[in-house]
């Protein structure tokens, strides 16, 4: 059953006199108890998509069209007050920079307890004991002492754990994690992802993970959506993306990863594919001018989203039904 369904979402961003569409007509869904990865390089629109789900897109970005169905109710038509009740209780979000997302003047323990008091209406003492439990759950050593600490007294990894504890405080149905380990060390990064995965299984929530690291995706996600220039160009189960990726951009992304992953001294030479400029406009496919397999049609007509196998969709002319060109190297 679908927990969240995003349908035809577009987000625009004004620049001078023009409006640029940074997220362009994307649709995807998240089932219960599932980890979805949203991957793409910088400028692909993945963070905007994530913030749009909670209607937290920063000014002057503007959600133009679309539906965001959560438990079959459209979040985009809800009044702000109802949305506020959903944020942090049904859907939680953890951000890139944990330290700046915490209140510097408040004890970290109290910040978690506050989440309980607001969303679960717990009494003070009950909220504190629950917060302590949560600190323990996210693997913070000596939780009683850390409860009294201020964010600046904790390391980046610890702050991110506190953020996760806060996000999970009210048993959300969906956790949105936007590059939750940027700036953290690899060993800490591994701890954070292991923790998210463990907790996800334990309390049975869904996770939308935004990242540019395909290694993390391979280890954490069930399904992946690949974004390029504001489109989801391909979406499939994790094995399919890594083994039978169809879209030329996915091939490029995975190709560069494979090259990096191979034994040393291999040839690393490959074309750099930059994201399209923010104001890039075309009638055709946004990837066409960088695509090794592009043909005339790609420049003149926007490719439709085609289902190539169960649960595997591609946005590319090469895989349209009845298209014979559909094989590329």
């Amino acid at each position: 059953m679908e927990l969240l369904a995003v349908k035809g979402l577009s987000v625009t961003f004004p620049q001078d006199d023009k409006t640029n569409r940074v997220v362009d007509d994307i649709s995807f869904s998240i089932r219960r108890n599932e980890v979805i990865g949203l991957v793409g390089e910088s400028g692909s629109g993945k963070t905007v998509t994530a913030t749009a789900v909670l209607r937290l897109t920063r000014q002057p970005a503007d959600i133009e069209t679309g539906q965001i169905l959560f438990h079959e109710e459209d979040l985009l038509t809800k009044p702000e007050s109802e949305l506020q009740a959903i944020r942090g209780s049904k859907i939680s979000m953890i951000f890139q920079n944990p330290r700046s997302s915490l209140n510097p003047l408040m004890k970290v323990g109290d910040q978690i307890a506050r989440a309980y008091r607001i969303h679960s209406k717990y009494k003070k003492s009950k909220a504190k004991s629950e917060a302590l439990k949560m600190l323990k759950l996210v693997g913070i050593p000596d939780p009683e002492a850390r409860y009294e600490a201020y964010p600046h007294e904790l390391s980046g990894g610890m702050c991110q754990r506190v953020m996760i504890a806060m996000a999970l405080a009210c048993n959300p149905d969906l956790l949105i994690a936007d590059e939750p380990t940027t700036g953290l060390d690899v060993t800490i990064e591994a701890q954070v992802f292991d923790l998210i995965k463990e907790l996800q299984k334990e309390i049975g929530m869904s996770v939308l993970l935004i990242t540019h690291d395909l290694g993390v995706v391979a280890e954490t996600c069930d399904r992946v959506a690949v974004m390029y220039g504001g489109h989801i160009v391909e979406m499939a189960e994790i094995d399919k993306i890594f083994r039978e990726q169809k879209h030329p951009y996915s091939k490029h992304l995975l190709g560069s990863l494979l090259k990096l992953d191979q034994k040393s001294n291999g040839d690393l030479n490959m074309e750099e594919i930059a994201p399209p400029p923010i104001d890039y406009k075309t009638a055709g496919c946004r990837f066409a001018n960088r695509c090794p397999a592009a043909y005339e049609r790609c420049f003149s007509e926007k490719p439709p989203v085609t289902t190539v196998a169960a649960g595997h969709t591609v946005m590319c002319h090469l895989y349209e039904e009845g298209n014979q060109v559909g094989t590329i190297a």
């Binding site: 690899v186 591994a190 992802f193 690291d213 290694g215 391979a218 280890e219 990863l257 494979l258 992953d261």
Partner: peptide, 24 residues
């Protein structure tokens, strides 16, 4: 621990991770 923490871009390999406790 450092080497085992690097994510491997292959969904089929599930390797054992050597975990360090806490922070530096």
């Amino acid at each position: 621990a450092l080497l085992s923490a690097i994510p491997v871009a292959d969904p089929t390999t599930k390797k054992e991770r050597i975990r360090l406790i806490g922070d530096t």
